[in-house]
Design a protein around this nucleic acid. Structure first.
Lengths: 157, 157
DNA sequence: CAGGATATTGACATTCATTTTCATTATGGA
DNA sequence: TCCATAATGAAAATGAATGTCAATATCCTG
């Protein structure tokens, strides 16, 4: 018994409320995005969309991703990479990252107590906080022993 | 009665332990960086350094900023901007950001309770956490009433 | 349901922060 | 002092992201 995905409807409502139009491209981009995994780049998303609809341009993917962000349906992540990654699934928005400033390695973690505090800050501020991003910087065990630091990769494998 | 700044010494030790050399350029870049304010871009830092030592190139500033990051003496921040900002002062590493996903506005906040939790995570993980970065995404009061969303600026004024 | 004001699209060109390259120079240990 | 090796800087390259603009699609209005 699966709950229906409300994201397509929420996106349509966002467009309508904002005076924007619903187009074939926006719908296909959104649908493909919602079905994708985490940490997706605009290029990767575009490649997937091309398989179904070769006519859609990368530029429109960028534009639609911005709309999805404004609708609260996409989270943009900036890791050490040169490009931005996008996460469609709110479940993935709740884990955080430990980043080694020596080797650049990234590890994920999750902490329930943090969420209560986030809610507190959300209330205190005038913001309606939808999601959050936490990164802890430090030195990982491997890099703790003094030795030559590794250069940071420009892009992932 | 001011405490002496340990950062120049810590940077020198980092270079020595890593088998790297201490140069006139690295020393001047580090010194200028430590004396600078928060949210400094590489270009801005380079401009300041040029006034004292016109021969130093922007490329070396980039390279030295990476070393400072690896030494735990610089925090790189990626806001919505096209470029990275660097913070030399650990005091500035402790405030966080509320980011509106509609208009892109950024507001700062500070919360003491969060720091205790960060320390807990630091202990649990194998990491020696030096600093942290927290961003809460949501909709600010101004954008809460439904209307045409604003485009995100590419660069600040 | 047709017409038309207006939003959207996509190909191309452009921007611009950051990184590579590589020949020259400087560092620091033997 | 010598010299292997690291560091520098200028120029060129890279590459993600955005602006431009003519052609097209949407959807509100009558």
């Amino acid at each position: 018994m699966t709950t229906p995905d409300s994201r397509p409807r929420r996106f349509a409502e966002f467009l309508a409320q904002s005076g924007l139009k619903s187009t074939r491209q926006r719908e296909r981009i959104a649908r493909t995005f919602f079905a994708a995994g985490a940490h997706l780049s605009a290029e990767e998303l575009h490649r997937q969309i091309r398989r179904k609809d070769p006519g859609i341009g990368l530029v429109t993917v960028y534009r639609t991703l911005r709309l999805l962000r404004q609708a609260g349906l996409a989270l943009e992540q900036q890791f050490g990479d040169a490009y931005a990654r996008f996460d469609p699934n709110p479940v993935d928005w709740t884990h955080h990252h430990l980043i080694c400033t020596r080797c650049g390695r990234i590890r994920e973690f999750r902490d329930a107590d943090l969420h209560a505090l986030f809610r507190k800050v959300a209330q205190t501020s005038g913001f309606t906080v939808t999601e959050h991003k936490l990164e802890l910087y430090g030195v990982c065990r491997a890099c703790a022993r003094p030795e030559r630091p590794q250069a940071r990769r420009r892009r992932p494998a």
